[in-house]
Design a protein around this nucleic acid. Structure first.
Lengths: 335, 335
DNA sequence: CTGTTAGCGCATTCAT
DNA sequence: ATGAATGCGCTAACAG
């Protein structure tokens, strides 16, 4: 393997000079030598060793993508995470950084990963609590959180308008005559703020139509227990529609309903959340609240990059909009 | 950040001794000192710096996952790749390695990535040609290819029995009375060996039933042009079924057929390939040839690990089996 | 503009 | 069983 030193020798200059042209410090190098060195670099296919570089100046160009989940889970099997992580990888690569995906729910693990690789930044998916904030302070590298509702001001965050998403779902159902509704949320037991917002928004908008969502009509969504969900839903008298705050659960629910002989949207209407690619492909197509994952990833990368270029910049928070995507899973109620 | 040296000072020993306990050379350290050192490591939360480690002994523990695709593509938006890569990440992590995903179709790019990080191994998704084999020789690190049909003996490869997959698809259709069939393959224009095998197997088994697949009934599958596919299929007189060698294209085709008012499986039967999670969720459920991606990833990781532990081991090739998954997209033909 | 020097954190001889 | 010394490939003062 050819090293910087090799190039220096071939060019008859010192390592410093080569290092300077490598890092764009052309002001410190005479044009002719610079040209010679660049030619040699190309000729020998020399590529700087990142591990050496990060040792010497702590600029590893590695960004940790931490997915807060069981360490032994294939996190990319979740289409939402895969899409988001893939887009992040792409954005980082474009900016000359290297994304390193890690699934874990142990803080020691995260810290270890960051230290081991001198990670320069972190993009975090999942629950944010005080431990992780403390970690941010201790490491001193920029963190970008996603979908965080932490009240702490000093964090970077990119999220979506979940409350409004809930409102849009409610309005759509209400405008089509639905008055008795149910709601399923996967984050119910973990007390996810995300779902709390969506639920609150949903309730709020419902109120304006004289519709309501009784407390016991709010249930846990679990894609692995779709049959239970379907039975619960069917047992609720007079309910004509449900808002499921994650597409993947909504889709499993629709299938379970079909198995029970209940037709969507004729008997029951369903609205999902996320607009994963799958939502378009099922039958009936899932009407859902769309969030733009590509944009989310781009904004996260941009925020991080600004922090990387200038660590003194204030933290920033971006809230992206959501939109209704109408497909076939919502019907009209005759009144 | 606490370093190895810090620990050595606290323990009142040399760096060498700490290094030895770190690397499990307990034979060279007195038990009591070893214990002390381990306690200090835990107490201070010391974690060895990988970049330094890889500089000093070239053991970066980084494995490059190279996806041969446009550099500017979100490769994880493909559910098959996301699932596979995610599983690979998990397997590598479990073995103490770090997977680094990179999408590119430029060899210079790959080489650069490998050199920059002292990658210790490569798992390669996609076309394999002589350039990449040459790269393998030049770098001297183990490569594991996936789904390669290269005739070169000196490579590691993990693939599936594509030929048999084609046969199974044909048998299933033929046994249900289908005699006039069509086939769509995404790799047709790129001359993918994978698809060639599947097609050959399909043809072969068809012959045993007196059924045939005329040359002009073999067409290019493109999920983005499903409508064209559907029209082509509909224009073929007497054809009652089609084998589509990728689920994602099969699913888009089914939707396009529905838009044309053609019913699956009543008018046309469809068999896919891969069994991506989606196949179960669409309506009608897609009958398909299943490959076990989790197993594939595990085997790839195992092969690589063996090569890493003992570089002199001979190359090996694993061919995994495929199975038929019956759902609802294939019907009977009345004769 | 250019070269010399030192050091990043670690593993590895080679002595002891 | 332990430590001192050397080097991995690179960057960053510093001095010319």
């Amino acid at each position: 393997m050819v090293t910087l030193k090799d190039i220096a020798v071939k060019a008859g200059v010192s390592k410093t000079t080569v290092s300077n042209v490598l890092n764009g410090n052309l002001a410190k190098v005479s044009p002719c030598k610079a040209k010679l060195i660049q030619e040699l670099i190309a000729e020998y296919g020399y590529v700087p060793n990142q591990t050496a570089r990060s040792l010497s100046n702590k600029s590893s160009r590695i960004i940790s993508l931490i997915v807060y989940a069981d360490r032994d889970k294939n996190v990319l099997s979740d289409p939402y995470i895969a899409l988001f992580a893939g887009e992040l990888l792409r954005q980082l690569q474009k900016r000359g950084y290297f994304g390193m995906i890690r699934a874990t729910n142990e803080y020691a693990d995260i810290l270890q990963n960051l230290n081991a690789w001198n990670a320069q930044g972190v993009i975090f998916f999942g629950t944010l609590d005080k431990d992780i904030r403390e970690m941010q302070d201790r490491t001193g590298i920029p963190f970008v959180f996603t979908d965080s509702y932490s009240s702490v001001r000093r964090i970077n965050n990119v999220g979506i308008d979940d409350y409004r998403g809930g409102m849009i779902a409610a309005e759509h159902l209400a405008q089509r005559g639905h008055r008795r509704l149910a709601l399923f949320a996967p984050g119910l037991e973990s007390g996810s703020d995300l779902d709390k917002q969506r639920i609150a928004g949903f309730r709020h908008a419902l109120g304006r139509y004289g519709a309501s969502l009784p407390e016991d009509h709010v249930m846990l969504a679990d894609p692995c227990r779709a049959d239970e969900m379907a039975r619960s839903l069917a047992s609720l008298p007079g309910v004509t529609g449900a808002f499921v705050t994650a597409d993947i659960a909504a889709i499993e629910l629709m299938r379970a309903l079909k198995r029970l002989g209940i037709s969507v949207p004729k008997d029951i209407s369903i609205v999902g959340f996320d607009d994963i690619p799958l939502a378009r492909l099922v039958t009936p197509g899932l009407t859902t609240i769309r969030q733009d994952i590509t944009q989310k990833a781009r904004v996260a990368a941009e925020i991080l990059e600004r922090r990387l270029d200038d660590p003194s910049r204030p933290n920033e928070s971006a809230i992206l909009d959501v939109t209704l995507v109408q497909r076939e899973s919502v019907g009209w109620v005759q009144s």
